[in-house]
Design a protein around this nucleic acid. Sequence first.
DNA 1: AGCTGTACCTGCAGGC
DNA 2: TGCCTGCAGGTACAGC
Length: 280
Amino acid sequence: MPELPEVETIKLGLEKYLVGKKITDIELLDNRLLQDPELHLKGAKVIAVKRFGKGLVIDLDNNYSIAVHIKLTGQFIYQGNEIKKSPPSIKLVGTLPSKFTRIIFKLDKNANLYFNDVRRFAWVKVLKTSEVKRLPFFKELGPEPFKDLKIDYFQKVLKKSNSAVKSLLMDQKKIGGVGNIYANDALNLACIDPRRKASSLKDEEVKKLYAAVHEVLKRGLKYGGATEINFVNALGQAGKYLEHFLAYGRGGEKCYNCSGTIKKIRIAGRGTYFCPNCQH
DNA sequence: AGCTGTACCTGCAGGC
DNA sequence: TGCCTGCAGGTACAGC
């Protein structure tokens, strides 16, 4: 699912191709996404692309921003004259616009930015740049790995929590950016049972988990994200982390830590994969 | 206050 | 073949 590494991968692509481009027109194919599609967008130039947790923010030169949460199936796909050698994956994207294209941002220099979303969970909001941080999602977002998630805070938040350690890792208000895939993999790497109460972890385990969270996210970034369901980068290409999952989606397969077999259970309604042999 | 369960949405896999 | 059911999951929200 799109988590920190996937959204960061999209952000890097958008930053590369969008910054300096002007939005010349908007084609809204799903009226639910924007009220007045041209307002504040037409004629504005992109000056920066940012990521906060799993959220994306495209800053414009008129003090307005486009804030986006792609949720499960949102995709940003850029097509422009400078892209010749990297065609989008037809299997994952289809011809553009596809039946799942919800917004087409027409840009200068004959470029187009397609926003696709199969399940229509994503949201797109146009608002003043200064107001972005006031959106509930951004306002309540917890510290994120590689930025301001410090070990002492991590320890404190685990100690205070009454829920399963896996649920806590995925709680965006506590920690920003970790979702189901990386929570499963981090716990496997740290040899911790996902059902454990977060507050029951010993100091040594907390440190191990903290390091494991960073390690699996680092791998996700290195492989350009995972392509479960339909994550693609800004050029419509698949990521490769799914070939490197430690536990996620590997039910019935061998654990990489030990001779055990990965088992699938449910925690708080979510598919959870772990090795009962080495994760305690 | 903080947690859990469910809704949102749609394609797809599996069963019959 | 085709219908039906259940499953996938990030967040928002109702309810405990």
